[in-house]
Simulated scan of single mutants.
Amino acid sequence: MWRAIASNALTLFIVALVVVAGILAWGRRTYDGPGPLAQAVCFKVEKGASLSQVSRALEDQGVVRDARIFRIGTEYSEKSAKLKFGSYLIEPAASMADVAGALTAGGQSTCGREVNFRIGVATAEVILRELDPAANRYVEVVRFDPAAAVKPPEYVEAAKSADLRWRITLAEGVTSWAVIQELRAADFLSGDVEDIPPEGSLSPDSYEVEKGADLKALVAEMEARQAATLAELWAGKAEGLPYKTPEEAMIMASIVEKETGVAEERPQVASVFLNRLAKGMKLQTDPTVIYGVTKGQAPLGRGLRQSELRRETPYNTYVIDGMPPTPIANPGRLSIEAALHPAATDYLYFVADGTGGHAFATTLEEHNKNVAKWREIEATQGGQDQGGVQGN
């Protein structure tokens, strides 16, 4: 009798183990398997929310099938204490494991609204945009001048949100003076800088910041990125270049940056100026002359006058020999690469060709023909600046 009871108990125990194992296996498959989402959503984790609250919200919004399984699986994987406040993009059919990973990964929000403070060569603008989860692209909400006395109500309201992402973007070719002036107008930064950073020392890049970030620390990060880029590229520079220091390469890079916005022709532009230096010719580049007039503190807003082309300044490359004493802007990585890896050409001249790029020439005769073609195009376009270098 006792043997029968023991046998039945053992059987029941084994059955229970099988049932429990089956439940665990089902739970694991449910936790790791595809989720119910048909299209991406932006899920927000409220500040201070518990795992139970988040689990229920996920189930209510159709992100997961079962809040209890999500909670148990997240606790079992030791992620329950790592929930991050913010808004996160959840992809279609994301498993519970994927969702838990998205909500506990480091860093800022991956969706929701973002402010991009863009500093361009001539102007600055603030763009508030919002991620469309279904299309996985940002949609602009409002755009405005950061110097505006009255900010758009959409921006004012969005700025109150704790999970709003903040980004600063510097365009290639912007001057250090312009960067600092515009950053001082950013109402989401704090502090100030005492001096304008040296020209060329700031990296044109995108910087994700937190609201209230220190301006001085941000500028230090911009300088650190540019210094790292220059050091990296200088270490692998081509042989036979005339630069004695990395700073001289940065001067050339800034000239290349201001002369063309076409990435593919930057090595050719660099070759023109290096070829001219090698032959003892003056660089004769308008952007340096303009910098001598404006000191980088504002766009010239007009064509150069003949008196300005004749006036002797340290930056007038129609008058001085060699390069100016400092960079004339903050060049991007591609322009630095071009200065340190110029194309192998015999070009000595270039002029705008009407397509946004330039026509290059080896001889003055060929260059004059290119200039004549540009003059014809220029006449139909209202007398734009021709750019490029002139003949001696």
Results as ranks from 00 to 15, higher is better:
N8Y: 09
L12E: 01
L24R: 09
L24I: 06
L51H: 12
R56I: 10
L58F: 15
I69L: 15
F70W: 14
E78Q: 11
Y88H: 13
Y88G: 03
V99G: 14
A102I: 05
L103T: 09
Q108V: 05
C111I: 00
V115R: 09
I119P: 01
G120Y: 08
E130V: 00
D132R: 02
R137K: 12
V141E: 04
D145S: 04
Y155M: 09
V156M: 07
E157I: 10
A159S: 14
A159I: 05
K160D: 02
A162G: 00
W177F: 12
Q181T: 02
L183Y: 10
L183S: 11
P198N: 12
S201H: 07
A213H: 08
R225D: 08
A231N: 07
Y243P: 04
A253M: 08
E257V: 03
Q268L: 07
L277Y: 05
L277S: 03
G280H: 01
L283V: 03
D286N: 12
G292D: 01
V293M: 07
T294G: 12
Q297P: 01
L300M: 00
P314N: 11
N316I: 04
I320S: 13
I320E: 14
G322F: 13
G322A: 13
P324V: 11
P324A: 15
A329Y: 01
N330T: 00
G332N: 04
I336P: 06
I336Q: 14
A352Y: 14
A379C: 08
T380L: 13
Q384G: 03
Q384P: 01
G391E: 05
